[in-house]
Amino acid sequence: MVLRTVDVGERRARLAARHRIAPAHRAPDPVEAAKSMVCLHGTDPATVYLSAWARVADLSVAELDDALYVDRSLVKHLAMRRTVFVFPRAALPAAQAGASNRVAQAQRRSVIKDIERAELHEDGARWLDEATTKVLHALAGGREATSSELRSEIPILDASTDYGIGKSWGGKVPFAPRVMTVLSASGHVVRASNNGHWRISRPNWARTGAWLGEEIEPRSESEGLRELVEMWLRAFGPGTEADIKWWLGSTVKGVRAALADLAAVEVDLDGRTGYLLPEDVDPAPPVEPWGALLPSLDPTTMGWFERDWYLGPYKQQLFDTSGNAGPTAWWDGRIVGTWWQTDDGAVRLYMLEDAGADAEAFLSDEAARLDEWLGGVRVMPRFPSPLAKSLAAQ
Results as ranks from 00 to 15, higher is better:
residue 2 V to K: 12
residue 7 D to I: 03
residue 8 V to E: 13
residue 19 H to A: 13
residue 22 A to I: 08
residue 24 A to K: 05
residue 28 P to F: 09
residue 30 P to K: 06
residue 30 P to S: 10
residue 31 V to Y: 04
residue 33 A to H: 07
residue 38 V to E: 02
residue 38 V to M: 12
residue 40 L to F: 12
residue 54 A to Y: 07
residue 57 A to E: 14
residue 69 Y to K: 00
residue 71 D to G: 13
residue 77 H to V: 10
residue 90 A to T: 12
residue 93 P to C: 07
residue 102 R to D: 13
residue 105 Q to H: 09
residue 111 V to Y: 00
residue 113 K to N: 09
residue 117 R to I: 03
residue 119 E to K: 13
residue 122 E to K: 11
residue 123 D to E: 11
residue 128 L to T: 00
residue 159 A to P: 05
residue 161 T to H: 03
residue 161 T to C: 07
residue 162 D to F: 09
residue 163 Y to C: 02
residue 163 Y to V: 05
residue 165 I to F: 07
residue 170 G to D: 07
residue 172 K to G: 04
residue 176 A to T: 01
residue 180 M to D: 00
residue 189 V to L: 09
residue 199 R to P: 02
residue 200 I to E: 15
residue 205 W to H: 12
residue 212 L to F: 05
residue 213 G to S: 10
residue 223 E to D: 15
residue 225 L to K: 11
residue 232 W to S: 11
residue 235 A to K: 00
residue 239 G to N: 08
residue 240 T to W: 05
residue 250 S to N: 12
residue 252 V to A: 14
residue 253 K to E: 14
residue 254 G to R: 10
residue 257 A to C: 03
residue 263 A to L: 06
residue 263 A to N: 15
residue 269 L to F: 02
residue 269 L to E: 01
residue 271 G to I: 06
residue 273 T to H: 04
residue 276 L to W: 07
residue 284 A to V: 13
residue 293 L to R: 06
residue 296 S to V: 00
residue 305 F to K: 15
residue 307 R to H: 04
residue 308 D to P: 00
residue 310 Y to A: 02
residue 324 N to D: 02
residue 330 W to F: 09
residue 335 I to M: 10
residue 337 G to Y: 08
residue 345 G to V: 09
residue 355 A to N: 09
residue 356 G to D: 10
residue 359 A to S: 15
residue 363 L to N: 01
residue 376 G to F: 10
residue 380 M to N: 12
residue 391 L to E: 07
